Simulated scan of single mutants.
Amino acid sequence: MKVLYKPFSVLFSLLGGVLAGMIFKRVWKAVGGEEEAPTPIDEDRRWREVLAAAALQGAIVAVVKAAANRGGASGVRRMTGVWPS
Score class of each variant (00 low, 15 high):
residue 28 W to Q: 01
residue 43 E to V: 11
residue 40 P to Y: 03
residue 45 R to Q: 06
residue 45 R to I: 03
residue 52 A to F: 15
residue 51 L to Y: 15
residue 59 A to F: 12
residue 50 V to C: 03
residue 30 A to R: 13
residue 39 T to I: 02
residue 37 A to L: 05
residue 32 G to P: 03
residue 29 K to M: 04
residue 44 D to L: 07
residue 57 Q to E: 09
residue 56 L to R: 07
residue 34 E to T: 12
residue 29 K to H: 07
residue 50 V to I: 15
residue 58 G to S: 13
residue 33 G to Y: 02
residue 29 K to R: 10
residue 36 E to C: 07
residue 45 R to A: 06
residue 34 E to I: 07
residue 53 A to E: 00
residue 50 V to R: 11
residue 57 Q to H: 12
residue 49 E to A: 06
residue 38 P to N: 02
residue 37 A to K: 06
residue 39 T to P: 00
residue 43 E to G: 03
residue 38 P to K: 01
residue 55 A to V: 15
residue 43 E to K: 08
residue 50 V to F: 06
residue 34 E to S: 14
residue 54 A to V: 05
residue 29 K to T: 02
residue 39 T to M: 01
residue 46 R to W: 13
residue 58 G to D: 04
residue 29 K to Y: 01
residue 59 A to G: 13
residue 41 I to A: 12
residue 30 A to C: 05
residue 35 E to V: 04
residue 47 W to R: 10
residue 55 A to H: 11
residue 45 R to C: 08
residue 34 E to D: 07
residue 51 L to Q: 14
residue 51 L to W: 14
residue 37 A to G: 05
residue 45 R to Y: 02
residue 47 W to E: 05
residue 48 R to M: 07
residue 44 D to K: 12
residue 30 A to D: 15
residue 48 R to I: 07
residue 28 W to R: 02
residue 40 P to T: 00
residue 32 G to A: 10
residue 43 E to D: 10
residue 44 D to W: 13
residue 46 R to K: 13
residue 31 V to T: 09
residue 52 A to R: 15
residue 53 A to Q: 00
residue 53 A to K: 02
residue 59 A to H: 08
residue 46 R to I: 11
residue 49 E to T: 05
residue 48 R to Q: 06
residue 36 E to H: 14
residue 43 E to C: 05
residue 37 A to S: 09
residue 40 P to K: 02
residue 32 G to E: 06
residue 48 R to K: 09
residue 51 L to I: 13
residue 51 L to P: 01
residue 44 D to F: 10
residue 37 A to F: 03
residue 36 E to I: 09
residue 55 A to I: 14
residue 46 R to D: 10
residue 42 D to G: 01
residue 50 V to G: 01
residue 37 A to Q: 03
residue 45 R to E: 00
residue 33 G to T: 03
